[in-house]
Nucleic acid binder design. Structure first.
Lengths: 116, 116
DNA sequence: GACATAATTCAATTTTTGTTGAATTATTAA
DNA sequence: TTAATAATTCAACAAAAATTGAATTATGTC
């Protein structure tokens, strides 16, 4: 995998609107949600949501298919796992013991971390 | 509010330069590297690298400390694991079996994923 | 102290993103 | 076939990010 390609995927998650959309779709995997429901859940104007959904689809993190007059969006869980594998590849030069030790320290829920 | 904080972290990984820097530091965890070595490895102009390192440090994904006249940068593995947990939280919420199936088919070392 | 080295900050410019309302396309229902 | 609904595209503007070279700060060496 090319870092230019992967950075585009992280760019898709670099807006709080898109991150919220993606997490909503991850929670609602594998069924996904139609655009109107996403807009309702997250209270984002339709026109702005379209802009962000387009970016997510272009990144590959989200897929879309027509369903009558609705558009159904789904998170691509395999791609999500791929970028996690990319990010963590050869962590600590492949020393799994070192990584596991970090893992034990990481049980901070980012939801509760202070703002910067 | 929380997603604004996490999206800033993904923003830090949304440039291919910064993504390359971060992965280099992940591979070289836990020791890290000094700025000049990063510049040499990745062939990035010092002034531009400083700009990107600053963004990484501000996101919290990278830490820095002075070492004589060198600056040593290190990846924050615990924060990396936290944002992975944030991204994958409640995946396939109603259907954990579905989520386990996705994981089994992926290339992710389970060390880096929260239990499900 | 004077000089070299490591790295950063600053200022200027260019490029890219995000947001909004109005107009448009696609589909279904009356 | 007309109207209603779902969603997108378009155009305009506002805001933020990337890049560069010159100047600056901090540290170590002669």
């Amino acid at each position: 995998m090319e870092s230019k390609y992967v950075s585009k995927i992280f760019e898709a998650l670099s807006s709080d609107v898109r991150l919220d959309v993606f997490r909503l779709l991850v929670r609602n995997a594998p069924a996904g949600l139609v655009a109107g429901d996403i807009a309702k859940f997250l209270d984002v104007p339709a026109t702005n949501l379209s802009f962000h959904l387009k970016a997510l689809v272009q990144s590959g993190l989200v897929t879309v298919e027509r369903e009558g007059r609705f558009m159904r969006y789904k998170a691509s869980i395999p791609l999500m796992l791929d970028i996690i594998a990319y990010l963590t590849a050869e962590c600590c030069s492949g020393n799994p013991e070192c990584c596991r030790k970090f893992r034990a320290e990481s049980h901070v829920d980012p939801t509760f971390l202070p703002e910067r």
